[in-house]
Design a protein around this nucleic acid. Structure first.
Lengths: 153, 153
DNA sequence: CACTATCTCCCACTTCTGCCCACAATGTAC
DNA sequence: GTACATTGTGGGCAGAAGTGGGAGATAGTG
């Protein structure tokens, strides 16, 4: 399973192209090579899934019941913004206009590796999100990940 | 399991490279050889994990649910600052600019072996941390952690 | 059948990263 | 003390990564 990490800032040119960070490229599994699905995230950012991970998401989605109102609403709204992308020969992604609009990305995009997916943020929105995260929150999440090694849980 | 100890001060050159202390290198397990993950620590310092220890951290992270808001916040903010590093042929690490910035490291880095991970400090921040810890506090901590196991006191 | 908008690819350029070599400083054995 | 090995430090260089523009292909529209 790929595990993306790190934060990388790249400029977006006037054609909507961004370089895909080299270090994240190295974390891609062979099957996923070059193919992604990009969609609107829950936070004001975009989610970028490599092909293999996206298949797992679709797997989950296929279990959603289409005959319930909630099920249909979830599927429709989750998938409607999604687009398949591939890297060009210079390892760039070209961001669809409507997704740039949704996420507020204009001339700079920030990639954040977040385990099995990559988040793509505009600098402004990311800064806002940071301001809402207190020092206590940070300590708490550290403990969640690193804490409790000694007591078998 | 590797167990790092000791304190080592090294200079950082103008390319952001630091020698990895020879004695710590000897404490690395064979599998971890040369590969590390470096990330922001809770104190104003960096945490350096050898590959094998980092895998245990990832194991924990993979159990965090990405479909919940909290889960994503944890992953994003924890992994954000993390980067994989390897030693160059001269046994040096080259510190990413944003991590030097975060930790206040400029031309000197201090490595502190701390069990399964290594902390990396700037001299200034480390001194501050020392000043905030009085001798009494230290004794108290010491007893809290180590006291009362074997010898009833 | 043009005309236009969009998308890729290709090329050129700049910046940066990692690799190699060299040398100084330190430690160790004889 | 001398010789040798290891460690720490600095600089140069080649290749990779990131950035931008232009040209040809493709598809949609009137």
């Amino acid at each position: 399973m790929p595990s993306f990490k790190g934060e990388y800032e790249h400029s977006v040119d006037n054609k909507g192209r961004v370089a895909f960070p080299a270090k994240l490229r190295k974390a891609l599994s062979a099957e996923a090579q070059e193919s992604f699905t990009l969609l609107r995230g829950l936070e004001p950012c975009l989610y970028l899934y490599p092909l293999d991970e996206w298949e797992r998401v679709e797997e989950r989605l296929s279990q959603v019941n289409s005959f319930s109102r909630k099920g249909r609403t979830v599927k429709r709204n989750f998938l409607r913004s999604a687009e398949d992308l591939t890297l060009d020969k210079q390892n760039r992604l070209s961001l669809p206009a409507h997704l740039m609009q949704l996420s507020g990305i204009r001339d700079t995009a920030i990639f954040i590796g977040s385990g099995e997916l990559i988040e793509v943020w505009s600098p402004e929105k990311l800064e806002e999100a940071d301001e809402n995260l207190s020092r206590d929150d940070y300590e708490e999440l550290f403990e969640m990940v690193l804490g409790g090694n000694e007591h078998g849980d």
